[in-house]
Simulated assay, not measured.
Amino acid sequence: MAEAIAIRNALLQAVDLNITHIWLRSDSQVLIGALSSGRHPIELYGMLSDISTISLFSFISCSFSFIKRECNGLANLHAKACLHSGPNHCNT
């Protein structure tokens, strides 16, 4: 859930900054797989639906890729901070 919140918040901030092309990477294979396939697990359905809608309608291009956790340390810390502070209190 923390990674999904971080991705949604990053997309919303990119929209605010008028970014039109974005490539987001996550160390969550399950999340990247769900976003890539369009199959949203019930526990993440609302969040993944938000991410899909934002990525589809707000960007010329939007990509999601898996990255190993050891290469993604700072983003992982940020995602955990978002989880603890709540989705409405975390800016990317």
Rank of each mutant, 00 (worst) to 15 (best):
V15A: 04
D50M: 06
A10P: 01
D50C: 07
S28M: 07
S37L: 09
Q13G: 00
L11R: 12
Q29T: 05
E3S: 04
A6W: 12
G38Q: 07
N18R: 11
M47S: 13
V30A: 14
E43Y: 03
I32F: 02
W23S: 12
V30L: 14
R25L: 10
V15C: 09
I42P: 01
L11A: 04
L48N: 06
M47K: 11
P41R: 06
T20P: 00
S37T: 14
L17T: 00
D16V: 00
L12S: 05
I19P: 05
S37H: 05
H40K: 15
L24E: 00
A6N: 09
M47Q: 15
R8S: 07
I51T: 03
G46D: 14
V30N: 13
A6C: 11
A6T: 10
N18D: 13
L24H: 00
E3V: 04
A14E: 04
N18F: 03
P41F: 04
A14I: 08
I19T: 14
S37R: 06
I22R: 03
V15H: 08
W23C: 11
H21F: 14
S28W: 09
M47I: 15
A14Y: 13
A34P: 11
I7L: 06
G46Y: 10
A4D: 08
I32R: 03
S26F: 03
I51V: 11
L44P: 02
S28T: 12
A4H: 09
Q29D: 02
R39M: 04
L24N: 01
S26I: 09
L24C: 08
I22Y: 02
A34F: 07
E43R: 05
A4L: 10
D16K: 12
L44V: 00
G46V: 02
H40M: 15
A14D: 03
Y45H: 14
A14G: 06
G46M: 03
A6Y: 07
L17V: 00
L35S: 02
S36R: 15
I5K: 03
R25W: 02
L12K: 14
S37I: 12
M47L: 15
L12R: 14
I22N: 02
W23E: 07
L31E: 11
